[in-house]
Design a protein around this nucleic acid. Sequence first.
DNA 1: GACTTTCATGTAATTTAATTACATCGGAAT
DNA 2: ATTCCGATGTAATTAAATTACATGAAAGTC
Lengths: 285, 285
Amino acid sequence: MNVLEKIVNSVNSFSKSERKVADVILANPQITIHSSIAALAKMADVSEPTVNRFCRRLDTKGFPDFKLHLAQSLANGTPYVNRHVEEDDGPDAYTAKIFESTMAALDAARQNVDIITINRAVDVLTQAKKISFFGLGASASVAHDAQNKFFRFNVPVVCFDDIVMQRMSAINSSEGDVVVCISHTGRTKNLCDIATIARENDATVIGITAQDSPLAKECTLVLSLEVPEDTDMYMPMASRVAQLVLIDILATGFTLRRGSKFRENLKKVKDSLRGSRFDKKDYHG
Amino acid sequence: MNVLEKIVNSVNSFSKSERKVADVILANPQITIHSSIAALAKMADVSEPTVNRFCRRLDTKGFPDFKLHLAQSLANGTPYVNRHVEEDDGPDAYTAKIFESTMAALDAARQNVDIITINRAVDVLTQAKKISFFGLGASASVAHDAQNKFFRFNVPVVCFDDIVMQRMSAINSSEGDVVVCISHTGRTKNLCDIATIARENDATVIGITAQDSPLAKECTLVLSLEVPEDTDMYMPMASRVAQLVLIDILATGFTLRRGSKFRENLKKVKDSLRGSRFDKKDYHG
DNA sequence: GACTTTCATGTAATTTAATTACATCGGAAT
DNA sequence: ATTCCGATGTAATTAAATTACATGAAAGTC
C-alpha cells in the first residue's frame, strides 16, 4: 500500500496535531516533498517533532524517508498491472491495456527468472555441436526467431515447426547436440515426445516452458517463465513476448561468452545485409 | 524524462568520478535512495562533494532532491531504462538489462503509437477478403506469429518468408485484399518492392515500419513504432517485441470489432487444441 | 473536587547530513 | 618545461532532522 493511501486509511487513528499534518500533506503533496520538516511544521501549525512522529507512525524511518515514500506514491508513472481487455473497450483503451499487461508480464518474468539456470543454458549452448529449436503454434514463431538469432553465430542451427521433421531431427541427434523445446503450457504432447526422444539419443534438452509441466519433466534444463497467462483460454500474447526476451538473453549470453574476437562473425553477418537495404541516407530530404 | 534515463543519456558528458557515481547508482538504485551522501560516496569510491556535483549536473537541487527524483523514477518498481549490455556483464547484469530495455522500449512505443491509425488498420483488416503477412529476417517470425493469430479468426490468411512466394502472392492480390509488410528499418529493398506491387494490384498495404522510411512511402497505412534500436548494428530485440505487441493489439481490435457471436469461432479453435495437450490436471501431484 | 497519571505536544539541545569554500593534483595547451 | 584549467578531495560551515526533556491538558482515582 502506498503512503498516500495509508494516510487516508489511518486518518482516524491520528491525534489532533497529526491530523493537521495529514491534512496539509494531502492538500499539497507535491509541495510537501520539496519542503523541509520546518516548513511543513509551520504550514500545519505544529512543531517539528510532531511531524517527525507523524512520519514514524506511518512506518517510515523519519521525515526524509517519508518524503521518499511520498514521492513514489506521487510518481505519475503508469501502474503496470495486468488489466484485461473488456468487451466495450475502445482502441485507446485496449491499446493501453495490452501494452501495460505485456510490460507487467515482463516485469513478473524478470523477477522470477533463474539466473543460474540461464547461465547453465548459455554454457550448454556455447558448447553445442548443433542447436535445434522446436515449437508448435505460437511457440513456432519464437523458435524461428531463435534460429534467426543463433544463425548469426555461425553455429549449426535448425528449426522445425513440422512434427514429422522435428521427430526425425530428434531421432538423429546425438551427444553434444542441444535441443530447445518451447511451449508456454508445457502440455503439448508432441513436443514432450520430441524432448523424450532427444534425451534418449543423448542430446541435452533445454525447455522454455512452465515449471513442473510434463515437458519440463523431460528436459535436462528448464528455463521457466512465470507469466500469468492462460493460453488455453486466450491467445498467447505476453507469454511469447517473455519467451522472446529469454531468447534475447540467451543469445546475448552466448555472444559475451564467445569473447571479442568472435564478434567479427557478427560484423560479417551485418555487412552481408547491407546490400539488401537502402542506405540510411538515401531517403533523407 | 526521468532521472534514470537522464543518467544513461548523459553518461558521456560525465567525468571519470561522476561516472563511477553513475555506475553505482544504476547498479543499485533501490539502495541509493536509502543511502546518505556519505554512504554513496564510499560505494562509488569518490568524495561527497563529487556526489553532490553529480546531482547538480542532473538539474537537481542537491543530493536529497536527487534522491526524490530517483525515487519517482523507481516508483513503478522497475527502472525502465535503455541500458546497453557491456562486455564484462555477468548473467545477472545482462539479464536485467535486457528485460529493462525491452520494457523501456515498450513504454516508448506505447507513448508514441498512433491510435487513430491503429483503428483504421483494424477497420481495413476486418473488411479484408484475404490478409497476407510479409516479413524478412527477424520480421519473418513476427509475420508467422501474426498468421498464427489471425488464422483463428477464420479469415483467409497467408504468410510467406520467401521472396519469390511473396512476390507471386503480391502480384495475385486484388482489391479488398490486405497486405501487411513488416520491417523495423523500412529499408529492406525486397519488401519495398512487394508493397509497390501489392498497391499496383489495388490491395491495401499496411506497413509496420519506421515513419518516413522507403517502405512507409509505399504503404496505404503506416503503423510506426518509435523504438530506438539500431538493427543495422545490433540484433533486433526490442523492435520486434514491439511489433508483436502491435500485432496483439490489431488482433484484439479485430476480435472486439467482430462482436460476440464471432467469438464462438475462437472457442472452436481453442477446443480443437485440447486433444493435442495434456489436461491441466493430468500432471498434478 | 483535588490529585495523580498519562498522553500529546512543544522547546531546546544534540546529532547527523549536506553543502560550501578552499586547497591540491593531474593533464592539456602554450 | 611551465602555466593554466578542470577535476577532485579535505576541512569548515551551515542546514536539517532527531532526541531528550519539559510542559500542559485530559482522563481517571481517591
